[in-house]
Design a protein around this nucleic acid. Structure first.
Lengths: 255, 255
DNA sequence: AAATCTTGTTCGAACAGTTCGAACGAGGGT
DNA sequence: ACCCTCGTTCGAACTGTTCGAACAAGATTT
């Protein structure tokens, strides 16, 4: 299933999607700016924008065009369809209330982690993560928990495909170190993240698996490193997460 | 700005987007099913799907392909970019807590209403609305509040473009009735919805405008008709909403 | 267990559509 | 009042897309 290269992509559609991505990463823009950044003719970009606008995927703006809310419609649909979301959500709210920290629910798609839902506790801190955010699995506690539930072969495919880019000096960047870490996670049941994605940010993560042992995602608790450390991190919080994940798994298999 | 028809749409991109929409409205599907429903060759659909998959917009599934979580990434981005969202959100949470009902924040795009964020109170009921949902403005309390803040000419454009489709027997379907209602809303400051979109569901809505008087959206409270009626609906709740909208407006104009 | 559907996938060739660049019109800035 | 930049339109060359047929793989049936 790991096709390296696509034989005959629909380049026209890819161009439209590229415009969409540029509007997301670069903010609002007009045809001229997009054309020069994407290396296309102004008229070409213009035509694409008009087509995207007709479907509501982009919308006119003071600075040109921006991504439209039609995408929120699609995105929320995608999330609601996901089996993990509806089952995990109430439990996450509960965990956030109990711990006061930020609690996330993450799932894997195409070898990347997607933040499905985040519940904010009373003392939760701001992090770069939002709902919908796509991250590298090896940079997340929840992501490493997911990886630990995959067979090694699958992990190797993911590493081959996406690499192990670093976010901080503590990010795991060596495949060997990753596999070692995954073995540890499998033993103790939960994953840890100590400033591997954001300095001063720690997290615990536990995988949620279906009744065949395949991960459908993971849940995690994250917070400032001086609050999430020692016994609280590897004891209380980890236990809490393990129990929650277990509950979710049971509810998952009867729905 | 109300271009009736597009001169030269990028039909290839439109095909891809059509596939995406079909996957959303019809659920997961494979190339064969999509091809027959969209009137395309199997091989064509296959190529589009592969391209969409490469960008994460669709993802393989047990039943073929489904819309991918990449769209959640885009959608949440679109929402976070929206000026109204970040300002209104905390206020909505507060209102939901106070009233116990479901509180929504809606904005307009291309003449349609988009549910940006919904806060659930303790007694809030389930409705078809989710975040991201696109609705007809005339079917919503918040939508009518938005329309009431538009110049008549703009409202006429929107009615011409989208019509006034009915959801229940009480939905406004005549332009004259709509304009009459909008005049009433302008006078008293808030909009009402009495079973115009869902039977037994009532709502109050108030527009949020910028310092030039243009609506950036609206906020609403909705709930069962026997709880949202009489003085509570047009008195307490309406007042609460008016105050909240006012607060949001002030915060909006200084950010 | 063999056979027969159906499904996802690949390929070539004809065709249709997209791309580019130049030119037009409009708006803002100097 | 001028100029510059932006969004928009148009025609023609050409590139990319579409279709249908054929293949492979899996599931279901007999």
């Amino acid at each position: 299933m790991t096709d390296d290269e696509q034989r005959r992509p629909v380049t026209t559609a890819a161009t439209s999607l590229g415009i969409l991505e540029r509007l997301k990463s670069g903010g609002s823009m007009g045809p001229t700016g997009l054309a020069s950044e994407l290396g296309l003719a102004k008229s070409t970009v213009h035509r694409h924008l008009k087509t995207l606008e007709r479907e509501g995927f982009v919308v006119p703006d003071d600075d040109g065009y921006r991504v439209g809310l039609r995408l929120l419609d699609f995105g929320i649909y995608a999330r609601d369809q996901h089996q993990l979301y509806e089952v995990a959500k109430p439990k996450l709210d509960e965990l956030a209330e109990q711990t006061g920290e930020k609690v996330w629910c993450v799932t894997e798609e195409q070898g990347r982690g997607f933040h499905l839902y985040g519940a904010a506790g009373a003392h939760s801190v701001r992090t770069p993560a939002r709902e919908g955010t796509r991250s590298y699995l090896h940079q997340l506690a929840a992501g490493k928990a997911i990886l630990s539930a995959f067979p090694d072969e699958r992990v190797r495919d993911i590493v081959d495909r996406h690499g192990l880019p670093a976010k901080t000096p503590k990010t795991i960047t060596a495949p060997d170190a990753l596999f070692e870490e995954l073995a540890t996670i499998r033993e103790r049941g939960f994953a840890l993240n100590r400033e591997e994605i954001v300095p001063k940010l720690h997290a615990v993560g536990v995988a949620v698996t279906d009744n065949e042992g395949h991960p459908v995602g993971a849940i995690s608790i994250s917070g400032p490193s001086n609050r999430l450390r020692g016994d609280r991190l590897t004891g209380d919080l980890a236990d809490l997460l393990l129990g929650a994940a277990n509950e979710v798994e049971i509810n998952l298999n009867f729905s």
